[in-house]
Amino acid sequence: MKDNVQSMLTQALSEINGAADLTAIEALRVKYLGKKGEVTTLLRSMGAVAPEDRPEMGRIINEAREAIEAALESAKEVKSASALNDRLIQEQIDVTLPGVAKKRGHLHPLTVVMNEIQDIFIGMGFKVAEGPEVDTVYNNFDALNSPADHPSRSLSDTFYITEEILLRTQTSPVQVRTMKASKPPIKVISPGRCFRFDELDATHSPMFHQVEGLVVDENITMADLKGTLDVFAKRMFGEQTKTKFRPHYFPFTEPSAEVDVTCFKCGGKGCRVCKGSGWIEILGCGMVHPNVLEECGIDSEKYKGFAFGMGLDRVTMLRLEIDDIRLMFENDMRFIEQF
């Protein structure tokens, strides 16, 4: 009987070794270890073994069963690994075929750049103030210290609806509204549409966008204005960016300045974008004129402020290298989808 067990084991191991696939392995499991399998049969035939030999025989059969189980297990592992491998090979695809996701949409370039600007100023503690596109002559000019006979008020510069109502030519009326509606400290930027009497061409549009900033508090200085815009320029155009504040004139600020940044295309060496100068003018700014503060009900002795403004369209065009402003309002999808 011992020999029977031995030969069955040899036979079983050889068959397991030769099994073609998982099905064959399962068949062998049934053949040897199933209810009517050979090992089971052998165990059942233990009755015929002498009682004193039974423990020994039992041990031998169990050892054989364990050996078969182990062989089955390892054969199964090998076969399933190879079966998986075969499947994976069969399932291979051309991953360079296009994705099937729905095409995403794109923000308008003005929004893209506005979001960047907004994020920078929000990070510096600014809130966002908005105001109407149609506003009063008072908010747009009078309250901003603009002389009554200033040419910018004329019908050839400004769109009017009535003698008292116009399309704002700048976002500065939002500053007036903000100062009248709230008490210092004030720290806002005001983005929005503006309108000026310009024929549409590659560099002019009768509708354009500005972003202005206004800070009013007790101890604001021109140095704070410089610092704030310097941080903005570095975040917007890169850490290596330098700013240059040149004296200028605006009715609603004094002292006033224009700000140049080192050309972000050439880094200041001079190129087509900066017309060879290495600098690009990007904004106007200054300390809020005391006349403006007083007009808005703010004590100009107690409070000071600074304001700045830039053309969003211009910054967007420079930033994204767009050479014709008309593209921005034509809304060709092939244009918008580039940003």
Partner: peptide
């Protein structure tokens, strides 16, 4: 000289953000 005026930041405790 505007170029030699300091560059500082306003000292305030304002928190920015969208409404």
């Amino acid at each position: 000289g505007y170029d030699v005026v300091d560059t500082t930041l306003p000292h305030d405790a304002s928190t920015g953000g969208l409404n």
